[in-house]
Amino acid sequence: MRLRSLRIILWIAATAAVITFLAVRWWPATDDTATADSAFMPTFALADSEGRMRTTAEFRGKFLLVFFGFTSCPDVCPTTLSEVAQVMDDLGSAAGSVQPIFISIDPERDRRLGLDDYTKAFHPAILALAGSEEDTKSAAASFKIFYEQEADTSSPDGYTMAHSPSLYLIGPDGEWLRQFTYGTSAAEIVSDLLTRL
């Protein structure tokens, strides 16, 4: 009888060990989007249109809605910026808790074309950042996003940019909360934000 109890306990212990092993072994592999990883805190340190350095640290206490793009992009970027503008309008009095940030992945050309007049045309609340190539690479790596310049004779200046088009939501403590994939409607984003604010 005592032996039987011991056997059951050992089986439970063995099963628990296997489950723990599998969890540790597979959890990071199956969830590398890091949405469930509360320790993932992407950062940036990039210049704004006036050349002032802006960092993630100064926005603690606010939700950040971060988007990577470029201003010569005629289709994807204006669509997303329009959604962000709609979100800011629809948030009403809660808009003060959300800072939308546009990070240029084509910083040299965007600085030349004018950053602020572009994003402000969508919504005055959107902060546009365009750092050095190096700072931009660091920010993209920190957010785990992809961007790449592609040679294309059918595009302005002979190149276009391929990039991750999602919106990233960063929480008030700087933690990554989730992404909104390209095409998520403003209404969906607003209802998600309102549950958090």
């Binding site: 992809f146 592609e150 294309d152 276009t160 991750s164 088009p165 390209y182």
Partner: peptide, 11 residues
């Protein structure tokens, strides 16, 4: 074209 989470804009 949005493929594997990357948007590109081929001619």
């Amino acid at each position: 074209v949005v493929q594997d989470g990357i948007a590109s804009m081929p001619h």
